[in-house]
Nucleic acid binder design. Structure first.
Length: 769
DNA sequence: GTAGGGTTAG
């Protein structure tokens, strides 16, 4: 602080003072002077830290034979006092002392950790100008730092600079840059470097091949990945455990479990032993596809080497399965219990699964609580866990805070990865912030992160959902131009977009194209097409698709049935609607809350309110949880046709499913207007515009009509006392809910908590346990 | 240089 704030004069004065002291007096008094020089008078963090640093500096200087600045600077670096260490370096330069190479390498690492690239480049420039000449280690430290930050351009430039300093880049340096290219989605750049590498007489090693194979799998390019694998074996490079881990992961991600297991077998036949990555990858695949029962024989293989205890494995598998089944509370409870019992810490993986499951479902508070327990248990959160927290914020529409977290992650050198950008991009589209999404896309490119298949798919999906089909198609073309292989997500998003646009024939053409490209249309594709056909009233074709599903190895699921039931209900074709309800139960497919909501809605529309009431009781009795749609549907019926039981039913639903949204407000406004309470409706709309709730097109249409209505009638209409007070009551509780929601007190944690928690130390490589 | 639900349906 003193040095940075004190101005040039004071700075010089202190320097001379220290120098004179060091030269004239004993070593001990020089140490005292140095301490005044480097350690700011005001404590930076806490007194304890300061004392420790002073002690460390004294000790370093006493032990060292170097001129006293360098050990002092090293001690400052060890205390994370980077600015002070930089000023120590300036003193050395001013005294024409040459700091050693190891000191420079240490400083580079600290500067990367702090994200201070500007200082780093300045130090490097000075180093090149006046020595010491950078060696292999210096270059590699710099290249690694730039690669971690995603600055592949600088990393590659340094690579080609190395020969000019008398040290030709080795395979390690090449691999770092090649890996960075792949991580940031520039497979082409990676290939170019591999070629250039061969020209310099440096042969690719197993790492080079592993990185390339991984990148190709991530692109979905299995054919090319296999070719590179063969080339590797031919050129005499032996595949290792990591090679197989990459291959197995690639297959699992594509749902090709059979191929994954074949690779696993091949691996063991080669005498390679699977490690924790192999295990986690395969188990994740089995659990994901609901086949955890079959993992047993593989586990035995892994357990033979006693890498894991059976209990630990079972706990992980159990927790992963629960998360897939949306039973996060149970999983979290088990985790907390096993922490308390103190008999073995649950794995990071287990924590990660639950945190992510919570975040995905929008339970950000629970996600954060668990994150806190994880950090308290001494487990380092990884970039993946931070991404999950980011997703939690995005799924709750808290984009601004997500942006803050993202900046913090980038600042930490943590994760300038595609994943975080993709989450943010998707988050923007979810809240309808299209220009925000465009900015994220640009920002991603600006960071030198080339979008991959997932990022492109998320972008295309966002455009499709916004009904910007022309743009979506353009982006799709761009994706193909970049040599990326579209996957099911990509096609399904486009097909959905065209169906919503009423262009089913284009959707069907895309489905054909998908098959031609070797992709299997899945249950999503089929449901989307069925829905599209139903929307067009083409029930015959929709039924044909339904009949053919089984031939393609697909089983209709609850969404398929709901689509048919809902579509038939909409056209008042109750005969066919009932027929699909029967088919559904015959197939043993359980109705979910949407099925009930559809059915309750059509009962309400047919003015069969008492039946609707019965249906609400029934769904609760079978353990289905009513949601906002249930509430809105029933209230719509209640407002339409007030019956004696309205208050009881309302009270019941308020207790179970009162999470009002814009649809709730719209339906209340509509009914107020319908009941001649137009003036009150307008008054309430004004009040609702004061709370954080975004009106949609429907709201504006309702209000347009209301204002016109008031102009015509002058607002004089009869009204029934009972109805009016009931509607007023509903309006009151709804706006109260919105107020409470916007009140910061209702949030149990703040984004600041996340940033201060677990960010103290730069995450190390995460151990599996 | 490796994992961990980044993106899809009613």
């Amino acid at each position: 602080m003193l040095l940075r704030r004190g101005g040039l004069h004071q700075h010089r004065h202190l320097t001379l003072h220290a120098t004179a002291a060091a030269a004239a007096t004993t070593r001990t008094s020089a140490i005292d002077d140095l301490l005044t020089l480097f350690i700011p008078s005001a404590p930076r963090i806490n007194p304890l830290h300061r004392r420790k640093t002073l002690a460390r500096i004294s000790r370093s200087i006493k032990l060292s034979l170097l001129p006293p600045f360098e050990p002092a600077a090293c001690a400052l670096l060890a205390s994370e006092m980077v600015p002070e260490a930089l000023s120590a370096l300036r003193h050395m330069r001013a005294l024409s002392q040459t700091p050693s190479l190891p000191f420079h390498n240490l400083l580079f690492r600290s500067l990367f950790d702090k994200g201070d690239v500007f200082s780093l480049l300045r130090v490097f420039r000075d180093m090149v100008a006046v020595g010491p000449a950078p060696d292999h280690l210096a270059f590699e430290a710099l290249i690694l730092g730039f690669c971690r930050r995603g600055d592949v351009g600088r990393a590659e430039a340094l690579l080609w600079l190395m020969p000019r300093f008398g040290c030709a880049p080795g395979v390690v340096a090449f691999n770092m840059v090649i890996n960075a290219c792949c991580v940031f989605g520039r497979a082409l750049g990676a290939f170019a470097i591999v070629c250039a590498m061969a020209e310099t007489g440096c042969a690719p090693d197993v790492v080079t091949y592993n990185v390339l194979i991984g990148a190709l799998f991530r692109e979905g390019n299995v054919g090319e990945a296999k070719k590179v694998f063969e080339e590797m074996v031919e050129s005499g490079v032996e595949p290792n455990t990591r090679t197989y881990n990459v291959v197995i992961d690639g297959y699992v991600k594509m749902g090709r479990l059979k191929d994954a297991v074949l690779a696993f077998d091949e691996m063991t036949q080669r005498g390679l032993s699977p490690d924790c990555y192999t295990f986690n990858t395969i188990v994740a695949g089995y659990v994901k596809f609901g086949r955890e029962g079959e993992v047993g024989h593989l586990l035995k293989e892994v357990l033979r080497d006693e890498l894991f205890s059976a209990e630990e494995l079972e706990l992980d598998v159990l927790i992963a399965r629960m998360c897939w089944d949306d039973q996060m509370d149970k999983a979290a409870e088990i985790l907390r219990r096993s922490l308390k019992d103190d008999n073995g810490t649950p794995s990071i993986l287990a924590f990660h699964s639950v945190i992510t499951a919570y975040a995905r479902s929008g339970f950000e508070t629970e996600a954060f609580e668990l994150y806190r327990s994880m950090v308290e248990a001494g487990l380092s959160p990884s970039a993946s866990t931070c991404n999950s927290l980011l997703m939690g914020l995005c799924r709750n529409g808290r984009l601004r805070e997500a942006g803050v977290l993202m900046d913090k992650m980038v600042e930490r050198g943590f994760c300038t990865s595609k994943t975080a950008f993709t989450i943010l991009l998707d988050g923007c589209f979810r809240v309808g912030d299209r220009s925000g999404a465009m900015n994220v896309w640009k920002e991603m490119e600006r960071h030198g992160v080339s979008p991959d298949v997932v990022a492109f798919s998320a972008f295309i999906n966002g455009l499709c959902v916004s009904n910007w089909m022309d743009e979506a198609c353009e982006v799709f073309e761009e994706m193909l131009r970049r040599g990326l292989f579209p996957n099911n997500f990509t096609y399904n998003s486009l097909i959905h977009g065209f169906c919503n646009d009423g262009n089913v024939s284009e959707a069907l053409r895309l489905e054909k194209e998908m098959r031609k490209n070797g992709l299997q249309p899945d249950i999503f594709t089929t449901n989307i097409i069925i829905s599209g056909l139903c929307k067009q009233g083409r029930f015959k074709s929709a039924n044909d698709v339904f009949m053919n599903m089984c031939d393609n190895g697909l089983t209709p699921d609850v969404i398929t049935y709901n689509t048919f039931i809902g579509s038939y209900c909409k056209t008042l074709d109750m005969v066919n609607a009932v027929s699909f309800v029967n088919k559904m139960s015959l197939q043993g497919c359980e109705p979910d809350i949407t099925t009930y909501n559809i059915w309750i809605d059509s009962l309400c529309r047919s003015r069969m309110m008492s039946q609707a009431v019965k249906m609400v009781d029934e769904l609760v009795s079978v353990g289905v949880v009513p949601n906002t749609v249930t509430y809105n549907t029933v209230m719509n019926g209640v407002c339409e046709d007030v019956l004696d039981r309205a208050m009881i039913l309302t009270a019941k639903l308020l207790k179970m499913a009162f999470v009002p949204n814009i649809v709730t407000v719209n339906l209340l406004l509509t009914h107020m207007c319908k009941q001649g309470l137009t003036e009150r409706a307008v008054m309430w709309a004004e009040r609702f515009s004061q709370v954080p709730l975004t009106f949609n097109e429907t709201t504006f249409n309702i209000l347009d009509r209301a204002y016109r209505d008031l102009e015509w009638t002058g607002g004089i209409r009869g009204e029934e006392e009972g109805r009016s007070s009931f509607m007023e009551f509903l309006m009151h509780i709804t706006i109260d809910y919105m107020y409470e929601l916007s009140h910061p007190k209702s949030r149990s944690w703040d984004i600041k908590d996340v940033l201060d928690y677990g960010f103290g130390e730069l995450p190390k490589a995460i151990e599996a346990r």
